[in-house]
């Protein structure tokens, strides 16, 4: 079953077309990566799919619900972990999680239960009562993902989740993302090719707001005639004509 169906999605900002006539579908439980150089339209696509910005043309359906007409329903199905960590720095880890539970209207008992469950899943118990602003970048990213996951979303948008993290923190986060594979549909945007290679079921490469290719990492490497995914990405972005 398709979790997301995108039909001719377009976003224009005055004379700039950030996303141009994008059409693709993402299966339920899939880990799908959106790749592209800066300005390719990845973040704008995520913003449209998460109802943060309205498309200029076209539509997308999240489990059959339109991002234009059924925004309230769509919001109850999705969660976003933005590019920035997007946590409240003066609150503790627990209070940040409570805030998100409250924003989703969870009752107190469910909130307590969900916090216990998510902090166990993401290994946050040791920092649960520490002030978020005092935590390292890796812990803050972990919390950011926990805040997205706590609402039990069917679709999770991870916008550059490992940006600025050290090797250890990145590898730990990869493990975490892998552990979610199949349980929740994940749409990942990243600049790190090895990240997309290691984690994705399928990859879409965009340039200037348009879709260049959408396939598995292996098939994309095959199409580009190389064994190295980074090289394949560079060739496709530089050479592919639309």
């Amino acid at each position: 079953m398709d979790a997301i169906t995108i039909e001719n999605l377009t976003k224009r900002y005055r004379d700039v077309t950030a996303v141009d006539n994008l059409s693709l579908s993402i299966r339920e439980g899939e880990l799908f990566s959106l790749l592209g150089v800066n300005g390719a339209g990845k973040t704008t696509t995520v913003k449209m799919l998460s109802c943060l910005t309205e498309p200029s043309e076209g539509d997308a359906y999240i489990f059959g619900k339109s991002i234009r007409k059924d925004t309230a329903e769509v919001r109850s199905l999705i969660a976003l972990s933005p590019q920035e960590t997007a946590v409240a720095p003066k609150l503790s880890v627990r209070e940040n999680l409570e805030l998100i539970c409250g924003a989703h209207g969870f009752a107190k008992t469910k909130t307590v239960l969900k916090i216990k469950e998510i902090s166990n899943l993401l290994g946050l118990e040791s920092v649960i009562d520490r002030k978020t602003g005092k935590l390292s970048g890796g812990w803050q990213r972990r919390l950011s993902i926990a805040m997205a996951l706590i609402s039990e979303p069917k679709i999770l948008f991870l916008d550059e989740p490992t940006l600025g993290l050290d090797v250890i923190a990145r590898s730990e986060l990869w493990e975490l993302i892998r552990s979610l594979s199949g349980k929740v549909t994940i749409i990942l945007t990243t600049h790190y090719m090895e990240e997309a290679d290691a984690l994705s079921d399928r990859v879409a490469i965009m340039r200037d707001g348009r879709l260049l290719v959408c396939d598995t990492v292996e098939k994309i490497k095959e199409k580009a005639g190389t064994d190295n995914f980074e090289q394949a990405f560079v060739r496709i972005v530089k050479e592919m004509k639309l």
Binding site: S50, C51, L52, A72, R75, S76, I78, A79, L80, S81, P82, Q83, E84, T85, A86, V87, A88, P89, I100, A103, H104, G105, M147, A148, S151
Partner: peptide, 13 residues
């Protein structure tokens, strides 16, 4: 600036 609002805009608030 911190994008916390962006995150909260994707909730049913």
């Amino acid at each position: 600036e911190s994008a916390l609002l962006q995150r909260l805009y994707t909730t049913p608030m």
